[in-house]
Measured scan of single mutants.
Amino acid sequence: EKTLKIVADSEEEAEALAKELAEKYNLEVTIERNPEEEGKYVITIKIKP
């Protein structure tokens, strides 16, 4: 299993990107607040072998 993390500037941007990735590529995608940067969100994508 591989994990890729993407940082987005807004929750709306994160949700839109996560939804597109999940639907288009059938990936497991989660969104959470970035504890290191206020106002940023981390999109985590898990790629199963």
Rank of each mutant, 00 (worst) to 15 (best):
E1C: 12
E1Y: 05
E1M: 04
E1H: 08
E1R: 02
E1I: 09
K2T: 15
K2E: 15
K2I: 15
T3H: 06
T3N: 04
T3Y: 15
L4W: 15
L4R: 06
K5Q: 15
K5D: 06
K5S: 14
I6Y: 13
I6V: 07
I6S: 01
A8F: 04
A8L: 10
D9S: 07
D9M: 04
D9T: 05
D9A: 05
S10F: 02
S10L: 01
S10H: 02
E11A: 13
E11F: 10
E11Q: 09
E11W: 13
E11M: 08
E11V: 08
E12K: 08
E12T: 09
E12V: 07
E12Q: 08
E12W: 07
E13P: 00
E13G: 03
E13N: 04
A14K: 01
A14P: 00
E15V: 10
E15G: 06
A16Q: 09
L17S: 01
L17Y: 03
L17A: 02
L17G: 00
L17Q: 03
A18Q: 05
A18M: 11
A18S: 06
K19F: 06
K19G: 04
K19M: 06
K19P: 00
K19T: 07
K19Q: 10
E20V: 14
E20K: 15
E20G: 08
L21I: 12
L21A: 04
L21V: 06
A22K: 14
A22R: 14
A22D: 02
A22F: 13
A22Y: 13
E23N: 11
E23Y: 11
E23T: 11
K24V: 12
K24N: 14
K24R: 10
Y25D: 06
Y25C: 15
N26Q: 12
N26W: 14
N26C: 10
L27Y: 15
E28N: 10
E28S: 09
V29N: 00
V29G: 02
V29S: 08
V29K: 00
T30Y: 09
T30H: 07
T30M: 07
I31S: 01
I31D: 00
I31Y: 03
E32S: 05
E32V: 05
E32N: 07
E32R: 02
R33W: 04
N34L: 14
N34R: 07
N34E: 08
P35S: 12
P35G: 08
P35V: 10
E37P: 07
E37C: 13
E38A: 12
G39H: 06
G39Q: 05
K40Y: 03
Y41V: 04
V42W: 06
V42I: 14
V42A: 02
I43R: 00
I43H: 00
I43N: 00
T44A: 03
I45A: 13
I45G: 09
K46E: 09
I47W: 06
K48L: 13
K48G: 12
K48Y: 14
P49C: 15
P49L: 13
P49Y: 14
P49D: 11
